[in-house]
Design a protein around this nucleic acid. Structure first.
Lengths: 342, 342
DNA sequence: ATCATTTTTCAAAGCGCTTTGGATAGCCTT
DNA sequence: AAGGCTATCCAAAGCGCTTTGAAAAATGAT
C-alpha cells in the first residue's frame, strides 16, 4: 500500500492525503479523519526511502566506530551510551546508523556520511586532544555533537562532557585527606582528551599538597581488567608501594582489586581504591551500597542528552554551540579507608 | 555535485555515467576511465537517499534493541556483537541501523522496519524459547538471521548459535571429573533460549552421574556482577555449600570470585569457578593465561558471521535457511582444581 | 445575486538516482 | 553496397514521497 493507492482508494489527491497525515492545517478536519482512519485500516506507512529523498532528511544519526586495535571505542561504555542516545532518538522519530570502520578509514567515513547524505548529523565519540574530526565536520557542514571535549581544538562546536579534571581532583583529595600520600593512577590512554584531563586533576591535587607525581605510580593504557591487574602488581612490588589507587573505570578497578587481594592485602584497609564509575547498567558498582568509592556519572544519561542536543541542532531549534559540563558525584563505598600506619 | 551535473560536465547522459560508475559492461573502457576520473576529481558520490529509492535497497541492516528493565540486551555482549557484525557490513558496503525501543513496542518496531522499508534485513538478538519475532518476520518477508535459537519455534529460519548445551555439559563434567559433586549454577534468565540450554547441559551432566539437581544451587537472574556475588554468598551459607560454581558469563563470575574471596576462601582450591567467556575484547579473561577456566566462543566472530549469512540471504546468494552450531572451546585457567577433601 | 475571501483540494513538478527500450555508429560478411 | 552484428550511448520512465502554484468550493459581505 503506497500513497497513490491510498489516495485513489479515498478519491483524494496524493497531496491532500499526504497533508492530512502530516498534520498540515489546510485540510478539513473531517477529511483528515477519513484519511487517518483509512491509513490505519489499510496499514499504510509512508516509504522511508521516498520520504527521505523528497524531504532531504533521513531521520537518522550517525555514529562512526573505528575498530582500533586498542578497542578503545567499541567497549562497554559505548554500548551504554548508545542505549541512552537511542532512547532519545526513538522519542523523536530518529534512529541511529552505525558505521564500523577501519581506523585508517575513519575520516573518509565522515566525509562519506556527509557527501552521500546518509545521516542528518553525527555524534563524535572519544575525542583526542586536537581532534581533526571537529574541523572536518565543521567544514562539511554536518551537524554534530561531541561526547567529551577536544582541548586543543579552536573550531567552535557543541559538546557534553563530564568534568573529568575535577572528578579526579576530588578523588585524589579524598585520598589525601585520608592520609594517603603514595597514590597510584591507572589511567586510560592519554592521547584521549578525557584521560589527559583526569591525569591533570590527579597531578594538580597532589602538587597542591607538595607531593611530586611519581612516574612509577602513574600509568596509562587500555582500560581493561588485566591492565589494572598487571600495573597494580608492578606498583605493589615497588620499594615504596602505593596505599591507594585511582582507576579510570570499574573494569580496570576489578583488576586492581584482584592484584591487591592476591597479595593477601585488604581493600579499604591496606590499599584503598577509587575509580570512575560510568554507571553502566550491566556492571553496577554494587547492588545496594557501592563496592568501590567512585566518582560517578551516567554515560547513559550523557548519551540521552547528546542525542537531544544534536536533534535540536538538526531541527534548527538551537543555533549556537551548546556546552554542558557535568559534575560527577563522589560516592563513598567500601574500598577506601585511612592510610595504613607503617 | 549530483549525477546530472556530472554528466552535463562530461557531455554524457546520466545513464552512461551511472553505468560507468556501477561497472556495467555496456560502456567503453575509455569513457569509463574518463567518468571515474571526473567523479574523483569533482568528488562525486551518489546520493544514498536517491539510490535507495531507485533500487529499493537501503544497504543497511536493522538491529532492534528493547530497553528492558533487565537490560538483558543492551549489554557488553551486544556491543562486541555489533562490532563484529559492523565489520562484515562495512566490507560489503552495508551499515547498521539500530532502533532502541521500549519493550512494549518491540513487535511494532519490526513491523515498521519492514513496512517503511528502512532496512534490507534484520538480526534477531536474544531469542526466547518460543520467540514471536520469528514467525512475524517470516510473515513480513523481511530477511533475518537469529543469533541463537528458539527451541519451540516451528517456522524455518536461519540461525547461528553456540552449542550452549554442550558447553555447559562439558563444563559440568570437567568439574565432576575433578571430584566436585556440589556444583552451583549462576545462570542467565531462563526464558532466554541460551540460558535454558545451558541449564539443560548442566542438569544432564549431573544426572548422568546420578546427582540430583539441588534447587538451592541453581540460580537464574540478570548476568551482573552483584548477582553473581549475592547468589554465591547465599550458596556459601548453605549447610552443604558448593565446592564449584558455573557462571553464565565473566561478569557474574567476577561477583562469584568476590564472594568467595571475601570468605577468605581460595579460588581453584576451596571453590572452583568455570564461566562462559564471550571473548569480549575489553573484558579479556586474563592477558596471557586465562584467569578463569571457561568455555569460550567469540561473540564478535558470531556477529561477523551472522552479518555474512544475512547479507548472502539478502543478495539472494543463499536461499535455504542456514544453520551454524559453533562448539565452544574449553580453556583451562587458574580457577579450577580438585574438589577439597572434607 | 454578485464579488471578494477564505478554505479545501488538486495537478504537476521535483528529489537524484537506476533501468528499460531504443537509437546510433562502427565493423564484418557476403 | 546491403544487411547483420555488436559495441556504445541516450531519452525517458519510473521509485514513492513532498511541495508549489493554481483551481475549485465554500463562505461572507455587499
Amino acid at each position: 500500500m503506497n500513497l497513490r493507492e491510498l489516495s485513489d482508494l479515498l478519491g483524494l489527491s496524493q497531496t491532500t492525503v499526504s497533508r492530512a497525515l502530516n498534520g498540515y492545517p489546510e485540510v478539513k478536519e473531517a477529511t483528515r479523519l477519513r484519511v487517518t482512519e483509512a491509513a490505519r485500516t489499510h496499514n499504510y506507512h509512508p516509504n522511508t526511502r521516498a520520504k527521505s529523498l523528497a524531504t532531504g532528511r533521513t531521520m537518522s544519526i550517525g555514529h562512526v566506530i573505528p575498530l582500533s586495535n586498542q578497542h578503545e571505542m567499541v567497549n562497554c561504555v559505548f554500548s551504554d551510551f548508545i542505549a541512552g542516545a537511542g532512547e532519545s532518538y526513538a522519542r523523536r522519530g530518529y534512529d541511529m546508523r552505525v558505521s564500523v570502520v577501519d581506523d585508517a578509514d575513519e575520516i573518509e567515513a565522515y566525509e562519506r556520511l556527509a557527501s552521500t547524505g546518509k545521516v542528518d548529523g553525527v555524534i563524535v565519540h572519544g575525542p583526542r586532544l586536537d581532534d581533526e574530526r571537529i574541523p572536518l565536520l565543521h567544514r562539511l557542514g554536518l551537524p554534530f555533537v561531541v561526547h567529551g571535549r577536544s582541548s586543543d581544538c579552536t573550531t567552535p562546536y557543541s559538546w557534553l562532557d563530564v568534568n573529568n579534571r575535577s572528578a579526579f581532583h576530588r578523588a585524589t583529595n579524598f585520598l589525601l585527606d585520608l592520609g594517603h600520600t603514595r597514590i597510584g593512577l591507572v589511567n586510560g590512554i592519554e592521547d584521549m582528551d578525557f584521560a589527559m584531563r583526569r591525569r591533570d586533576g590527579y597531578s594538580t591535587a597532589l602538587e597542591a599538597r607538595g607531593i611530586k607525581v611519581d612516574p612509577d605510580l602513574a600509568h596509562a593504557f587500555e582500560m581493561t581488567e588485566p591492565f589494572g591487574y598487571a600495573k597494580t602488581r608492578e606498583m605493589l612490588d615497588l620499594r615504596d608501594p602505593p596505599t591507594a589507587v585511582i582507576a579510570s573505570s570499574l573494569i580496570p578497578a576489578l583488576g586492581v582489586r584482584r592484584a591487591v587481594e592476591e597479595r593477601g592485602l585488604t581493600i579499604g584497609k591496606d590499599v584503598s581504591i577509587i575509580c570512575f564509575d560510568d554507571a553502566l547498567s550491566y556492571l553496577p558498582n554494587g547492588a545496594g551500597s557501592p563496592i568501590f568509592t567512585a566518582t560517578r556519572s551516567s554515560v547513559r544519561d550523557a548519551g540521552r542528552r547528546c542525542g537531544e542536543i544534536l536533534m535540536d541542532q538538526i531541527e534548527g531549534r538551537t543555533t549556537d554551540p551548546v556546552h554542558e559540563l557535568w559534575e560527577a558525584e563522589l560516592v563513598v563505598g567500601q574500598s577506601t579507608g585511612p592510610a595504613p600506619t607503617r
